[in-house]
Write a protein that binds this DNA or RNA. Structure first.
Ligand code: MN
Ligand code: MN
Ligand code: ZN
Ligand code: ZN
Lengths: 143, 143
DNA sequence: AAGCAGATTAGAATTATTCTAATGTTATTG
DNA sequence: CAATAACATTAGAATAATTCTAATCTGCTT
């Protein structure tokens, strides 16, 4: 066996735990394992089901419901961003900077587009005094 | 009772049937009723469940599965456009012109933004020789 | 007016997601 | 440094959303 595809944490535990505590979450075993899979190996666009598979593959004892709980909690705390492509494909994005996406319809893959590469002009005012919470741009590509 | 909220077709039957036949679909009772609810009363952003409720309210005999079938078939034929906001909210849009949306998070309502009001510049090339099939812009507003 | 091919429908099944009751953790108190 | 209370977390069970597939219908073709 080569060393690729290994299962060990990339971030150190203390740093991960601090990150969780800093947003008011307990660094439980399940969350630490999921946070490591999410944040310990570069930016990811991942589904709940895929993260669950990753967790099982690394031997973490966690239920799918807990994966959903963690993903939604992390999203609410601003550690993740949710991007819904269609009714069966909802991704959680570890890149929380303002940015946009290519969506490859055939493979189901998402790819980041830096915000500097998309300029939105003539944007209409939000009605009333309502404020814009987010702008999502998805460029669908047929490959 | 006033005359608002009535149930009668706005388009004439022959025109609706022709529209369906022109895209290769049989103008069945279920499709005619659904097409009338969709296209016979101005532009709509509607969920499958809401269209099903509308259909039941107008006394049409149709199952929810058939509503999904019709919505997806109409979308495949270019009569509708599907816009997914989050994993529990997928809308079918009777406005098939290229345009964008405001999404009101509190009410769950979508509102059209004319394409002329959003200018995208510096758009990155689609990778390889892949072509862009669609660009979706959703402006989320917290009201 | 059968017979056939393909289209359509809708009940059943599946998948995705959420709910809630049980369990675990931390803080407080005596 | 127990015991207890308050709150957070987990995950099995329930629900909601969507799709599958077998039965039915429709419109040719002979
Ligand atoms: Mn769902
Ligand atoms: Mn779903
Ligand atoms: Zn991204
Ligand atoms: Zn629209």
């Amino acid at each position: 066996m080569s060393s690729s595809g290994n299962k060990k944490p990339v971030f150190n535990e203390a740093a991960l735990a601090d990150q969780l505590r800093s947003v008011g979450l307990r660094p439980t075993q399940q969350r630490m394992a999921l946070a490591d899979l999410l944040f310990g190996r570069g930016n990811r666009h991942i589904t709940a089901e895929a993260l669950y598979s990753d967790a099982l593959a690394t031997g973490v004892n966690v239920s799918l419901a807990t994966v959903y709980n963690a993903l939604h909690t992390f999203t609410a705390k601003g550690l993740l961003r949710e991007i819904t492509i269609d009714s069966t494909r909802s991704y959680f994005d570890t890149n929380i900077d303002e940015h946009h996406h290519f969506y490859f319809e055939k493979s189901g893959r998402l790819e980041d587009i830096d915000r500097a590469h998309v300029k939105l002009t003539r944007l209409p005012e939000a009605p009333d005094g309502l404020s814009v919470s987010r702008i999502d741009v998805v460029i669908r590509v047929d490959g």
